[in-house]
Computed example of a mutant assay.
Amino acid sequence: MSSKILKSPILRFFRGKVIMAESASNTASKKLIQIDVSSDSVCPWCFVGKKNLDKAIEASKDQYNFEIRWRPFFLDPSAPKEGVSKKEFYLQKYGNRYQGMFARMSEVFKGLGLEFDTAGLTGNSLDSHRLIHYTGKQAPEKQHTLVEELFIGYFTQGKFIGDREFLVETANKVGIEGAEEFLSDPNNGVTEVKEELAKYSKNITGVPNYTINGKVKLSGAQPPETFQSAFKAASA
C-alpha cells in the first residue's frame, strides 16, 4: 500500500475506529478486581503496602480492571486532635523502642526511594478519613491518588495529618472540589466514617488489611507477588 493511501483521512479515521474497537473489546474482556483497603493515614506500613499494591496493579493491568476503595481504621482512637510531636507521642506509647521502630521504617522507606520524616506532629486522623470518604463519594477515581498524597505529606514532608490547611491543599492538588467547605463542618462525614469502620474494619486488629473481590483477604504490607497471586485467586 502506498504512503499516499496510508495518509488518507478516511483510512486514518477507519483505522482509528478499528483500534478503538479492539481497545474496548480488550477492556471488556478483563476481569474486575475490587479491593477494599482498611487503613489509617498515620500507619507507615499502610503506605508501604500501597506502594507494593501499586506495583502489583501495574504488572497486572493487562489482565484486570481495578476498583480500589479506602476504608477507615484508627490505630489509636484516643490520639489527641491537636498536634503533638511524633517523637514525644511514640516515646510515651512505646518507650525507647520507638527509636528502633523509626530506624526500621527509615530503611524500609529508603527501599522505596523515599525518606521517612520523623519530624513534625501526629494526632487523631479522623479528619483525613472524612476527606477520604468525601473523595470516594465525589470522585471515586481520585480517592487512591488522594491517599497517596496524604501519605507522602505525612510520612515524608512532616505534614500534620490533622491540619485542615494540609488536607484542603491535598484535595485541591488532586482535583477534589468542595473539600474546604465539607471539612469546615466538623460533623460532616463523621457518621459515614463510623459506619464504614463498623462494616469494613470491625473484625480486624491491624492494618493494612485488604479484601479482594469480597473473598480473598490479606493483611500487612505484602510484596507485589502476593497481591498478584491474590488477584488470580479472587478472579477464579
Score class of each variant (00 low, 15 high):
residue 4 K to N: 13
residue 5 I to P: 00
residue 5 I to Y: 03
residue 9 P to G: 02
residue 10 I to R: 00
residue 11 L to D: 02
residue 11 L to R: 06
residue 13 F to G: 02
residue 14 F to N: 10
residue 16 G to N: 01
residue 16 G to Q: 00
residue 26 N to M: 10
residue 27 T to F: 12
residue 31 K to S: 01
residue 36 D to G: 03
residue 48 V to W: 00
residue 53 L to D: 13
residue 53 L to N: 13
residue 56 A to S: 09
residue 60 S to D: 10
residue 60 S to I: 12
residue 61 K to M: 15
residue 62 D to H: 15
residue 62 D to Q: 15
residue 69 R to N: 15
residue 76 D to K: 06
residue 81 K to I: 07
residue 83 G to Q: 02
residue 93 K to F: 12
residue 99 Q to K: 10
residue 100 G to H: 08
residue 104 R to H: 10
residue 105 M to D: 05
residue 107 E to I: 05
residue 109 F to S: 02
residue 110 K to D: 03
residue 113 G to S: 08
residue 115 E to C: 05
residue 122 T to N: 13
residue 123 G to I: 07
residue 124 N to D: 15
residue 125 S to T: 07
residue 127 D to V: 04
residue 129 H to W: 08
residue 132 I to C: 09
residue 134 Y to A: 03
residue 134 Y to S: 04
residue 135 T to H: 02
residue 137 K to D: 07
residue 139 A to D: 05
residue 142 K to V: 14
residue 149 E to T: 06
residue 152 I to G: 09
residue 152 I to D: 14
residue 154 Y to H: 04
residue 155 F to M: 00
residue 157 Q to V: 09
residue 162 G to D: 11
residue 164 R to Q: 13
residue 165 E to H: 15
residue 166 F to P: 13
residue 166 F to Q: 09
residue 167 L to T: 11
residue 178 G to A: 08
residue 182 F to E: 02
residue 186 P to G: 11
residue 187 N to H: 06
residue 191 T to S: 12
residue 194 K to D: 00
residue 201 S to W: 00
residue 203 N to P: 10
residue 206 G to W: 04
residue 208 P to G: 00
residue 214 G to D: 14
residue 228 Q to A: 12
residue 233 A to P: 15
residue 235 S to G: 13
residue 235 S to W: 14
residue 236 A to H: 14
